[in-house]
């Protein structure tokens, strides 16, 4: 058996176009998951607010307890039954963002809870409101502790984004499949696709590590 990478070279423009789409989907989903994760993580700090806490906990339990693929299909194939027809790209971003957000919320909650109680107490004793104390004192410290686990989440998010190819989004995965359907060189094309994901995940890891380093240096 010989390997023939000619179809990969020939299809490179499409693969790169797909890579850009993958990056777009992932980046948008990342933003959504960060906002969602922050909100849900903070809500889940306080069981006394029963309704909000209940909704947030149900969200985390449901999303973490069901497959991402099923969630994506619910958005893409299920919602139209209610007359809600979202563009594929939007479904992909929302699905991935909601999914990743549930994990990020646990990262956020854990990091906040790991900050010494005295920090919140000191901020409150100075007259800061809960929100001010959270924003000024607790979150900046918690953020640094979130970075390593957030790196894992980002890697998972990038890899999980391959599933949106099943929603007809032309990401790098789907572009690869398209090349295979005409060239029948599955092995070579999937190797190329895998390499592209590998580069993306490691680039993301590198960026987060630089951020972590900078935050450490800044504090002397």
């Amino acid at each position: 058996m010989t390997l023939d990478f000619a179809p990969v070279w020939g299809g490179l423009p499409e693969l790169l176009k797909g890579t850009v789409v993958t990056i777009e989907v992932t980046a948008a989903a990342f933003l959504l998951s960060a906002v969602l994760g922050l909100l849900v993580g903070i809500i889940r700090l306080n069981p006394a607010r029963r309704v909000l806490y209940g909704i947030a906990s149900a969200y985390v339990a449901f999303i973490r307890g069901t497959p991402l693929l099923v969630q994506l299909f619910l958005l893409f194939f299920g919602l139209p039954q209610f007359g809600i027809l979202l563009p594929a790209m939007l479904c992909g971003v929302i699905g991935l963002g909601i999914y990743s957000g549930s994990y990020v919320s646990e990262v956020v909650r854990g990091a906040i809870q790991s900050i010494d109680r005295g920090q919140m107490e000191a901020a409150r004793s100075l007259g800061m409101s809960y929100r001010e104390a959270m924003w000024e004192v607790v979150l900046p410290q918690a953020f640094r502790r979130m970075l390593p686990p957030l790196g894992n989440e980002t890697i998972a998010l990038i890899k999980n984004s391959a599933l949106v190819s099943l929603l007809t989004i032309d990401d790098v995965m789907r572009e690869g499949q398209r090349i295979i359907s005409t060239s029948f060189r599955a092995l070579e094309v999937y190797i190329a696709v895998a390499l592209i994901y590998f580069v993306l995940t490691n680039a993301a890891t590198w960026i987060l590590r630089q951020l972590e380093k900078r935050l450490t240096v800044e504090r002397g």
């Binding site: 107490e121 004793s125 007259g127 410290q141 640094r144």
Partner: peptide, 24 residues
């Protein structure tokens, strides 16, 4: 209520055993 409590706390300085300075 929270708002008035915050205002009153602002006028009440507190020093803790473990300092609780903000490390960042």
């Amino acid at each position: 209520p929270d708002k008035e409590l915050n205002a009153l706390r602002a006028e009440t300085g507190m020093v803790f055993q473990s300092f609780n300075l903000f490390p960042h």
